[in-house]
Design a protein around this nucleic acid. Structure first.
Lengths: 146, 146
DNA sequence: CTAATTAATTAGCATTGCTAACGAAATATA
DNA sequence: TATATTTCGTTAGCAATGCTAATTAATTAG
């Protein structure tokens, strides 16, 4: 069954709106970590995907290298990430999360998730299943597009 | 059937991640409008909820008044919003979208939606239904929490 | 009529996005 | 091999967006 263009756009619009509202709500807790959203996001990439070069990190975060250069400098200054030279190519650097960075990220993540979970408190079993599937469908669709 | 705390957190985490990725992807097209995301978002509030004071707009966007003051100044400078004195309380201002603001917003919105709709191209009927329901469940849950 | 509150702005700071220009290192080519 | 090109990261400088503190003007309370 082919989906009509109209249906797809309507769902796209609703999803976009819901995503904005969900993140705006979750954002409030990130303030507690004393680190900005760009740094937390980059840190989470380092924690979950492991060490990588600055360019790879910039690509993963979809920002330009100069932007990531400053984000990494900030993480380094806060002791959340460390930077080593790449063995084999002296132009590259190897960025990785420190133990403190991993801890801080898990805490920030905990807070966000707890906040969102409270919001979902009244959502019942079948609806929870729908949400779980929806998240999976979205990620798959985005992966395909990339 | 009571949802376990563990399940709720897992779904919250997945939704958070999916929302981040979805918005990061959609963001790219907003560049075309030559207006930043904060201005487009404020403009959309004006377009869909109608004229309001600066304080109301700040509250709707969950930012502080000085931030909104500058956003409104930007919109005004671009001819996308206009500002009038409030009849009855000279401290207040009445902010509203101009015709050009409405047009630009619809165009930016169109681009975003079209981009996301393309991403959902391969999503079939039943899954589309899940996404539609998910968006609704999220909005409802957030409305209850607010 | 004064005092307190409220609405918006201004000033100043930090973060985060960009492009342009640069330096250093690696790779391709003549 | 020597030079040219490409690649990687940084620096400099701009704009947008978030904040708090302090100011101004208007309204409301006492």
């Amino acid at each position: 069954m082919a989906q009509s263009e109209h249906d797809r756009r309507e769902v796209a619009d609703k999803l976009h709106s819901a995503a904005i509202h969900l993140l705006r709500y979750a954002r409030n807790k990130d303030v507690l970590s004393q680190e900005g959203p760009a740094r937390l996001s980059a840190l989470s990439v380092l924690v979950f995907l492991g060490p990588m070069t600055l360019g790879q990190l910039a690509a993963a975060e979809q920002v330009k290298p100069p932007t990531m250069s400053r984000i990494v400098a900030g993480l380094k200054a806060s002791g959340l990430a460390k930077v080593e030279g790449d063995s084999g190519d002296a132009r590259r650097i190897r960025v990785s999360a420190t133990a403190r960075g991993e801890r801080l990220l898990q805490e920030a993540r905990e807070r966000r998730i707890r906040l969102l979970a409270e919001t979902l408190e009244d959502v019942r079993g079948p609806q929870m299943f729908i949400l779980r599937q929806a998240a999976e469908i979205i990620e798959q669709a985005l992966r395909r597009t990339k």
